[in-house]
């Protein structure tokens, strides 16, 4: 089975966020980049499915700037067979619908039977590219998946829903987005890292895929804001009994949550 894994390059989760002088973007100066953490669960799932089947191919796919190739190499080092990067000056600010349009085009061109995603690209936290892509492809989809099995051309996915779990059945080709808990992503081995160095990252421009230029359709960013600073809190001193008594009183009379 040929499996596509869509991965997004995002700022490291340790990053302290600053707003750029234009007030409408996050300043990414000096920031280090990683594969969005949820995408690592998707890569691991693809590798496990390939290993279980004893055959197949895992292709990582990204839409991003040229630097995206660097994080894609980590996916190759984990064991992905190939990397396809669609890059264009316009894609850096592409909205989810456009990203989905590009990913759907690549999935079709590659002829993948299963397209895996992370449930969310940390940073912009759009939480929709997998579902948008599935709809554009006309494929069944399961989002926020914590359990996955493929047998006899059918996929069974256990997804996390509010207050429980749901088991979905999907025919292939299908789209799945991975949630933490699906598996434990492997570290790249030294051998993997060496092998990844020799692999090329196939890079395409938008036009080469026969795609129309991007258009911002859905919104305009007016401004970015930092969260309101929290007022300095109160430390409660004393022996545990006295501390607890005072806390409960504050929760009751001041915060009124009790």
């Amino acid at each position: 089975m040929k499996i596509g894994v869509c991965i997004k390059k995002v700022p490291d989760t340790e990053t302290r966020i600053r707003i750029a002088p234009d007030g409408r973007q996050v300043s990414l100066e000096g920031v280090s980049f990683i594969i969005s953490p949820y995408d690592e669960f998707a890569i691991e799932a693809a590798l496990q499915l390939k290993e279980k089947a004893g055959q197949g191919e895992v292709v990582v796919i990204a839409v991003g700037d040229e630097d995206t190739g660097k994080v894609m190499r980590n996916a190759l080092a984990m064991g992905a067979d190939r990397a396809v990067l669609v890059t264009d000056p316009a894609v850096v600010e592409a909205e989810p619908y456009d990203v989905a349009r590009i990913l759907a085009a690549v999935a079709r061109k590659e002829g993948v039977e299963l397209l895996l995603f992370g449930k969310q690209g940390v940073g912009q936290d759009y939480q929709q590219v997998p579902t948008l892509t599935a709809e554009l492809l006309g494929w069944p989809a399961a989002a926020v998946v914590v359990g996955l099995d493929v047998a006899g051309g059918e996929l069974t996915a256990t997804r996390e829903i509010d207050g429980g779990e749901e088991v979905d059945r999907l025919s292939l080709p299908a789209v799945v987005s991975a949630q933490k808990g699906l598996n434990t992503p492997r570290y790249a081995s030294l051998k993997g890292i060496m092998a990844a160095k020799k692999k090329t990252i196939e890079t395409h421009a938008l036009a080469a895929l026969g795609l129309a230029p991007l258009a911002q359709r859905s919104w305009e960013v007016v401004r970015l804001e930092m969260p309101p600073a929290r007022a300095a809190g109160r430390l409660i001193d004393g022996e545990p009994e006295a501390q607890v008594k005072q806390l409960v009183e504050l929760l009751h009379t001041e915060a009124k949550v009790l």
Partner: peptide, 18 residues
């Protein structure tokens, strides 16, 4: 419309287009 980005480390204020 205000929505959190970077898991609430910042917020984005957007205006629907169209």
């Amino acid at each position: 419309i205000k929505r959190p980005i970077y898991a609430g480390k910042a917020f984005e204020v957007v205006k629907p287009a169209g």
